[in-house]
């Protein structure tokens, strides 16, 4: 038995799948794509192009090397014969190294004292009993700030107590 193919008889233009992903279909084309997606073959082909699309879109943007923008500014100005002496970077002057051994020793002593205090005074990890029902309501309250208030608040009124 052969699976029914809704696209049989009328060749399906695969490039519509990319257009559908990009919101570039007419309503009639979108309807045709959504009907064709009933076919596992078409759905698999959609998944393929969708994965490539997502891979490119989610790849982090490359960053230019350090100092690039300073060079570009200079080059663009030079290309149009503009000089701007004010924009010349100020020379970088190294700050003198300051040696303050007494503070350093004091800090080390304080750190050691803190470690001792931490070992002695800090209790072990607390045991947490999440009040799941309260947290579910808190999520509904927060969601209702951003979403439709009636539908997001309604579960608070019906979730009397926490019932899994």
């Amino acid at each position: 038995m052969t699976a029914f193919d809704p696209t049989a008889g009328a060749p399906f233009d695969d490039s519509l799948l990319s257009a559908w992903l990009d919101d570039e279909c007419t309503p009639a084309e979108a309807a045709a794509v959504e009907a064709a997606l009933a076919s596992p073959d078409v759905a698999a082909r959609l998944a393929e192009v969708a994965s490539a699309r997502t891979a490119v879109r989610s790849a982090p943007w490359p960053e230019p090397p350090a100092g690039f923008w300073d060079r570009v500014h200079a080059a663009v100005d030079a290309a149009d014969g503009v000089t701007d002496s004010v924009a010349a970077p100020a020379p970088v002057v190294a700050l003198p190294v300051r040696r303050r051994p007494t503070r350093w020793v004091a800090a080390l002593g304080a750190a050691a004292a803190a470690v001792v205090a931490a070992v002695v005074l800090v209790p072990g990890p607390a045991t947490v009993r999440p009040a799941v029902g309260t947290l579910v309501d808190a999520h509904a309250l927060r969601s209702s700030i951003q979403g439709d208030a009636a539908s997001t608040l309604a579960p608070i009124a019906v979730s009397a107590g926490f019932r899994p």
């Binding site: 490039s15 570039e24 192009v49 699309r53 490119v56």
Partner: peptide, 11 residues
Amino acid sequence: RSRLHRGRKLL
């Protein structure tokens, strides 16, 4: 549309 789709398939 067609070049974009073919490009994605190749990718």
